[in-house]
Nucleic acid binder design. Structure first.
Lengths: 311, 311
DNA sequence: GTAAATTGTGGGACGGGTTTCAGGTCAAAC
DNA sequence: GTTTGACCTGAAACCCGTCCCACAATTTAC
């Protein structure tokens, strides 16, 4: 494989000059520039990206940790992060965590070994404080409200929209509202916020035995459907339109009358069923997360979610 | 930032020995290993991944070109590629092309600059021959039948399942079947295969003026809905369940009676609507694509699609 | 008891660029 | 006529590891 020294030797100029030509820098006469370029073209030479990265001390790569993949929330977030990155000349490396702290740790260590200029956790299982420690090696960004922990964050403020949603539910007279939570409230800020909004509107916390915890996919929704079919709530507030669709599918398959439902993320399935939903504006979150990861921005960026009433 | 030379100097041993310790290699006495490790731990040292990559001449990274992101087909394919990669110790870098040949060219050039050990095109706009040229720099993989072009490929054989699908449609007596194609048949192998299967079953090629070209997303489906509402086919064979859902949404919103439909990709929306679909087994395709990209496999891998009748 | 193999350690080339600094030329400014 | 400064070019240090090779000290084999 030909390298910059070959080009220098063959063209008869120094490595420095070749480097200047490659990077379109000043202080090379037009004549020399042309000659060097001719040699480059003739040998079909392309400089090594890795060598550049090492020399410059920057990789122009951002790692993005994703717990799961086939999931509208994460897909949409990933999409916006990737597009924003690309616009800034950064590349995005996917880091699938499957919610395993061991893998998360591995990605953090990789970050410590300077594989990436910045690291974004779209979700995480390890304690926030553990992630925060690694900020010593560069920007570490989370996509949730980090509370008291000092870490860069881009997230949606869901309080208001959850509140609106519960008020909408209450105004319609539903009595037995079940929540579908992605993970245990103590592990997930999103779940906590849902529970808090419920409590604020109904004056009492939701009965944990009437909620379903651990719904991520449409399949999970089907499993939850069996649970709700026994429990018979009159309203199910799901954590995703696609998940709500799973619940509905269970009822339909078993010839049962489904409860009223509401979803989140404003997906196709939600429109199809005509149920209310909440748009968390993931495009804006992704853009902000990237800006934090590249160091273009600092601190926290908060984006407001939007309740969409239907039916 | 501390480096391997610092560790060598401070521990009193050579760089070679430190390198051996770091990589858990033989030929270091237990006593020395312990001492060196103590210095490493004491200084909280982690070796630079980029320097390693340069030295080893491998990046352990695979680039994956995706035209779009929020799309079940590409999401699922990406998922399986990423998981397979991770299992082999490879990392996946996302390269969003938005179907622009200019961007594709840029990714190919990046590959030439040895940013990745392998490159996977989940789809592409540039001519296959252009991609094939870059195999000189390492494995370039496409996810379609490359025909006569000599390039690594992992793809589904859709002929049989399309044929079954059209036979199922014909057996039910539908007369005016419209196709929804992702892109113009001359640009897309998938579209061509659909058209060929139609022709084989119905004995005559489909009327191009009755097909819809350019459907990728649910939104596109809505647009197509307006087209079909005027055209009034009695059957619409869509290129995705989610896209078919978009068509249905248009009809429902306008209070019209929708045609019979069929989708592809076996998605939530398809089950929800109870329409037939085709599963292209993208998990297997992704795994095969990765094996080709790392050089573990060579040539072509063909996977068979599966027709799923419903309703 | 000596030849051969194995183990332990260090030196230094190598991978392929970027960047600082030094030195030289030449035209404009004073 | 000298100073100033912009322009051009090259030498060499630097980024940070890996790995081949040399050499010494032990073991093992015969």
């Amino acid at each position: 494989m030909t390298n910059i020294h070959d080009i220098a030797r063959i063209s008869g100029y120094s490595v420095s000059t070749v480097s200047r030509v490659l990077n379109h820098r000043k202080y090379v006469s037009d004549a020399v520039r042309a000659k060097v370029q001719a040699v480059i073209d003739g040998l079909d030479y392309a400089p090594s990206e890795v060598a550049r990265d090492l020399s410059r001390g920057k990789t122009m790569k951002i790692g993005v940790v994703l717990p799961i993949f086939v999931h509208p929330y994460y897909t949409a977030l990933m999409q916006s992060i990737t597009e924003a990155a690309f616009a800034q000349g950064y590349q995005v490396t996917l880091l699938p965590s499957n919610y395993q702290p061991k893998l998360e740790k591995q990605f953090l260590e990789q970050f410590r070994r300077r594989s990436f200029d910045g690291l974004i956790f779209t979700s995480h299982e390890s304690p926030l404080a553990d992630l925060a420690k690694y900020q010593e090696f560069g920007p570490v960004v989370v996509c949730e409200d980090p509370g008291a922990v000092d870490i860069a964050a881009a997230f949606t403020d869901r309080k208001d929209s959850y509140r609106q949603a519960f008020e909408w539910i209450r105004a319609r007279g539903y009595q037995h509202v079940s929540l579908m939570l992605p993970r245990e409230p103590k592990l997930s800020a999103t779940s906590r916020t849902m529970v808090e909004a419920y409590t604020a509107v109904f004056g009492t916390p939701p009965d944990p035995t009437r909620n379903w915890v651990g719904s991520m996919t449409n399949e999970d929704g089907k499993a939850a459907g069996a649970f709700f079919a026994k429990l018979q709530p009159d309203f199910v507030f799901s954590n995703g339109d696609d998940i709500a669709a799973g619940v509905l599918e269970y009822y339909v398959e078993h010839g049962l009358q489904p409860p009223a439902m509401m979803g989140q993320e404003n997906e196709t399935a939600g429109r199809l069923m005509g149920i209310s939903t909440i748009d968390h504006h993931l495009d804006a979150v992704g853009q902000a997360a990237l800006a934090l990861a590249t160091g273009a921005k600092h601190g926290r960026v908060e984006i407001t979610s939007q309740f969409i009433a239907r039916g």
